[in-house]
Write a protein that binds this DNA or RNA. Structure first.
Length: 587
RNA sequence: GGGGCCGUAGCUCAAUUGGUUAGAGUACCGGACUGUCGAUCCGGGGGUUGCGGGUUCAAGUCCCGUCGGCCUCGCCA
């Protein structure tokens, strides 16, 4: 070993010991006759003292030290005089009095310093990711990530789950997300697809009798990115046999508690609350509501349909909805310009054509459109939204879909902006009873909400033929702070029900056979009732770290256009490689 | 595919209505300094204002295009 201790562990009680430390020069303070170095590794920082009187050769080298040089220092641990201790550092009560110094590796002047001050733009940080990763936030994230995956493995191991790997090179199944394709050299013109998830494999593992499976699986989706989406990401993939929905949910409740314990040392009270899809869509306008605060949506259809405000009245007449929310005490918080521009644009992104708002003043509505509402109607609106003087009431009148999306976004914005919750808090809940299918207006057909193998609430099976939109799926999402953090379902193992679902989705027998024949064939050879779930590992790490960007918890992430600025991927390849694959690039 | 924000010294930023030689802090280089911990003080070097075109007597600033980064709608069974 080139060191006896790390840079975070020495304390006053170690005074007198001779130690050797290795690390990066984090700061240097050169007083000519005395030089201080803060030596950094991933465990912490320790002050090293170089004294002119001791050894002029060492001192000469110490004068040359610059940021991010890697050095090895030996010397005696010395207690600092009380008035010279640094309370900001855990090691601040001691310093190492250098008797030997070896520069292990000189650093070029770094493009930026990983001290977290004046953080450069992300482009530069991604280009020099090896430096960015020295920053405390990223070091922290990698540690949380490690602890989390270890907790996951330990938890499932305790419960008798087997960790089984599934192929990365698989067959393309052209529904859902766009596949990343890998050309085959041996089979001209044919391609593998990277897995969007191990979904079909894990169902076959159930058929094979591995009744408790989990895997920390890399997944790939060639879709446009977001702050919480990367083209390759990691799922905690789980599948169980001979279980019902609640068994799975309880198992995952325990997993979430174990993860929270390991990542943050927090105990989460179980069971996690469960809400139905219908319930949260009505109350929050979203199937992934942020439960850290209230501010629920309120329907004012009765008043709106009867008032003189054309937008409201016509929306109700056309079968739309008028709903609003109450920003408590925010009447004077937002200027008219912000309301008419920023807020209107915000809801406009979701298709809302406008935003109506009132301030509650003297028990009445105060707004340019208040005149369209009678005294009784104003009282009714205020009462429905629990309005008090000083409150700001905001309304969107539109279709169910648009008003939900717009108000959900507005609610999230207001919740954050009005600081209605502690941003370090974690609030998880289950969303259950999703609709099995949703009507696709453009294509004039029913689409699976989850996937075509998702099972049905037994009492709803007859509805498959009469009222498909009302059929509830045996699927469930785990939502955390407004993010979809896990999603799963009980799968169909009954051929007759599967056929009904395929019929509903307009998937012919030939088409089903062509698309997922290998799964269907497997299910014909004794398939146990089974179900599972997949948790987005990256998102959980992000949530547990309190970050709002998934790139901050991935060691080597990609940009929004899916390029890796560090390595330059994707890149062109040699003609010879293309020849082998019989692929030609066309302009 | 659509909408929005951004790009000036290695880095973080400034630069009036379009107007002198594009500035500051930090980093870097040199000097001073034996108790600092964002060390301090003195001095110095450092610019294709992302790139290309246009308007103008004059462009970092205005216009068009393009490249790159971020946020977002669509998309993500």
């Amino acid at each position: 070993m080139l060191r006896t201790h790390n840079c975070g562990e020495l304390r006053k009680t170690d005074a007198g010991q001779t130690v050797t430390l290795c690390g990066w020069v984090d700061k240097y303070r050169d007083h000519k006759g005395i030089v201080f170095i803060d030596l950094r590794d991933r465990y912490g920082r320790t002050q090293i003292k170089f004294n002119l009187a001791d050894d002029s050769d060492i001192q000469k080298t110490a004068w040359q030290l610059r940021y991010e040089d890697v050095i090895q220092v030996s010397g005696e641990v010395t207690a600092r005089p009380d008035d010279m201790a640094n309370p900001k550092l855990p090691t601040g009560e001691i310093e190492v009095h250098a008797a030997a110094l070896d520069v292990l590796s000189k650093s070029k002047t770094p493009p930026f310093e990983p001290d977290g001050q004046n953080l450069p733009n992300e482009e530069l940080r991604l280009k020099h990711r090896f430096i960015d990763l020295r920053r405390q936030e990223l070091q922290q994230a990698m540690q949380v990530r490690h602890r989390l995956t270890k907790a996951v493995r330990d938890y499932f191991d305790e419960l008798g789950f087997l960790d089984i790997e599934t192929p990365i090179l698989g067959r393309s199944t052209p529904e859902g997300a766009r596949d990343y394709l890998v050309p085959s050299r041996v089979h001209h013109g044919e391609f593998y697809a990277l897995p969007q998830s191990p979904q079909l494999y894990k169902q076959l593992l159930m058929v094979a009798g591995f009744d408790r499976y989990f895997q920390i699986a890399r997944c790939f989706r060639d879709e446009d990115l977001r702050a919480d989406r990367q083209p390759e990401f990691t799922q905690i993939d789980v599948e169980m046999s001979f279980i019902e929905r609640d068994d799975l949910i309880e198992t995952i409740d325990g997993l979430v508690a174990a993860m929270a314990e390991s990542a943050r040392g927090e105990s989460i009270s179980l069971p996690l609350p469960r809400y139905t899809y219908h319930d949260v869509m009505e109350r929050f306008g979203s199937d992934k509501p942020d439960m850290r605060f209230g501010m629920e949506l309120v329907d004012i259809a009765e008043v709106a349909g009867d008032c003189d405000f054309g937008v409201f009245k016509n929306t109700i007449a056309a079968g739309g909805r008028v709903r609003g929310l109450n920003a408590k005490g925010a009447a004077d918080k937002y200027s008219r310009r912000i309301l008419d521009n920023d807020f209107k644009n915000l809801v406009g992104e979701y298709g809302a054509k406008g935003l109506a708002y009132f301030k509650v003043t003297d028990g009445k509505l105060d707004s340019s459109i208040a005149k369209f509402f009678g005294e009784e109607q104003q009282r009714s609106i205020i009462q429905k939204l629990g309005g008090e003087n000083g409150d700001l009431l905001l309304f969107v009148a539109d279709s169910d879909k648009v008003s939900s999306a717009a108000l959900a976004a507005l609610r999230n914005h207001l919740g954050r902006d009005l600081e209605l919750y502690d941003p370090s808090e974690i609030q998880c809940c289950w969303i259950i009873d999703f609709p099995l299918v949703t009507w696709n207006e453009e294509e004039q057909r029913w689409d699976a909400e989850h996937h075509p193998f998702c099972s049905v609430v037994p009492e709803d099976v007859p509805l498959l033929e009469t009222d498909p939109g009302k059929v509830r799926a045996l699927s469930y999402d785990l939502v955390c702070n407004g993010y979809e953090a896990a999603s799963g379902s009980i799968r169909i193992h009954d051929a007759a029900v599967q056929q009904k679902v395929f019929d509903l989705l307009n998937i012919s027998a030939e088409e089903a056979e062509r698309r997922f024949g290998f799964l269907l064939e497997g299910l014909r050879y004794g398939a146990p009732p089974h179900g599972g779930i997949a948790l987005g590992l990256d998102r959980w790490v992000m949530l547990f770290c309190g970050y709002d960007n998934i790139r901050d918890v991935i060691a080597f992430p990609k940009t929004q256009r899916a390029s890796d600025l560090l390595t330059g991927a994707p890149s062109t390849v040699d003609d010879r490689q293309l020849r082998d694959l019989q692929i030609r690039v066309v302009e």
